[in-house]
Computed example of a mutant assay.
Amino acid sequence: MQRAHPDDWAAVLDVVVLLRELASALPARRQRAALSAGADTVGAEVVSPGALAEELVAALLDEPEQNVIGALHWALVRLGDEAVTPLIEALDDPDAQVRGRVLAALADLPGPRSTAAVGALLGTPDSDPEPEARLRARAAIVVARRDPAEPLRGRTREALVKAIRTGANDVEAAETLAVLDPDGDAAAAILAACVPAAAPEERRRIAQALGEIPGAEARRVLGLLVEDSDRATSLTARLLLSRRTTPDG
């Protein structure tokens, strides 16, 4: 806490109560404490926003109740840039579920430091356990919506394609890929390159993703998938191709 004057002792007591309530055994009390912390009503005279953010992030990492997690998320977003540093540090947590909570908060805190931290989650091995794969997919979706520059843009595109292939948030990944590449050709070319080595269920997802992507290249690849040996892939490609109204659409 910052050095307090005698007139500030009531504020000091408020902060002490807040910290105690954040550690309460009762979820309702923890939720009320988080909401109070984000409402700019507790201890502003005696505790810095950065120190408060650290306490809230620590609570977020250990919180088992979804309602309380939501309140902590809201409070951290209200703190703005002050919350970014402790959230970035929390991305080192070994638990993918906990890092997912941190990512959700960073998603609502735009800025170069936040984007770089989320982008660092895109570096991933070829095979991930499902929680890790979903975390990487979610990170790619967050970064893509911030219209990143190269080389992060290219890494984001590759991560979205991987999400489509593996089925980790594949529908949202396909929609986001279409937004990331408005003309569609770069994304469609990457998906096309995946087809020869893809299993039937992957080719179905690729066909579905191509249905979200505009451009002549996506149309060409869908035309090839109409002849796919997997009946479901072929029918999906045929249907999506029939919905295109222009040669470049």
Rank of each mutant, 00 (worst) to 15 (best):
A83P: 02
V84C: 00
T85Q: 15
P86K: 06
P86E: 02
P86N: 02
I88N: 05
I88E: 04
I88D: 03
E89C: 09
E89N: 13
E89S: 14
D92K: 15
D93M: 07
A96I: 02
V98P: 05
V98K: 10
G100V: 00
R101T: 03
R101D: 13
L103I: 12
L103D: 01
L103R: 07
A105H: 03
A105C: 15
A105K: 05
L106H: 07
A107C: 03
D108E: 15
L109G: 12
L109T: 10
P110S: 08
G111Y: 04
P112M: 12
P112K: 10
P112V: 08
R113H: 12
S114F: 04
S114K: 02
A116Y: 07
A116V: 02
A117S: 12
A117G: 09
V118S: 11
V118C: 08
A120K: 09
L122A: 07
L122Q: 03
G123V: 11
G123H: 14
P125N: 04
D126E: 13
D126R: 11
D126I: 02
S127W: 12
D128A: 09
D128L: 13
E132P: 00
E132M: 02
R134V: 08
L135K: 00
A137S: 15
R138G: 12
R138K: 15
A139I: 01
A140H: 07
I141W: 04
A144W: 07
A144R: 05
R145D: 11
R145E: 13
A149V: 04
E150W: 11
P151D: 12
L152D: 07
G154M: 11
R155N: 13
T156I: 02
T156L: 06
R157H: 06
E158P: 00
E158A: 15
A159M: 13
L160Y: 04
L160M: 04
